[in-house]
């Protein structure tokens, strides 16, 4: 992947550290945020190509963050990949709040990389 800019929003700091490493190892540029409010404040500046979003967070939940991103003209087209420990999250939260897809924790990082690639491909196709 060519230096994909990714915004990672999750309140679990250790997970963010590890996942940032994983994504960096796969050639991504990662911006981590530990809560939704900060992420929303910076999203226009960071201009990520993909947003990785935890659904259950203190303060603003992942759903609220996704909702706000979709209402903002400048951010509404950014694909969101949701990450959740909810039971069968991948089946339940598919197609909610325009979420591209949802991965249930724990997931194989290789699957996440493939998912990111797929999301970027779809996003560039829709721009074309």
């Amino acid at each position: 992947m060519d230096k994909v800019k990714i915004m990672l929003i999750d309140d679990n700091r250790v997970f963010c550290d590890e996942l940032k490493e994983t994504l960096s190892l796969n050639g991504c540029e990662v911006f981590t945020f530990f809560n939704g409010k900060e992420a929303l404040r910076s999203v226009e500046k960071v201009k990520p190509e993909i947003i990785l979003l935890d659904l259950k967070m203190d303060g603003l939940s992942g759903f609220q963050v996704a909702d706000k991103l979709k209402k903002n003209e400048k951010t509404k087209t950014i694909p969101i990949i949701a990450i959740s420990g909810f039971y069968r999250a991948h089946e339940t939260f598919f197609n909610i709040h325009n979420i591209y897809c949802c991965l249930t924790k724990p997931f194989n990082p290789a699957v996440l990389i493939d998912t990111i690639k797929g999301a970027i491909k779809q996003s560039s196709e829709s721009v074309d």
């Binding site: 590890e18 490493e21 994983t22 190892l25 909810f86 039971y87 924790k105």
Partner: peptide, 25 residues
């Protein structure tokens, strides 16, 4: 049980990701 199970998924995810990173490095 379901609360405990749910909460265990976060650390499991960290372990799996860390394992991936070690493997890569």
């Amino acid at each position: 049980a379901s609360t405990v199970a749910h909460e265990l998924r976060n650390p499991l995810c960290v372990i799996q990701t860390a394992s991936y990173n070690i493997r890569r490095k």
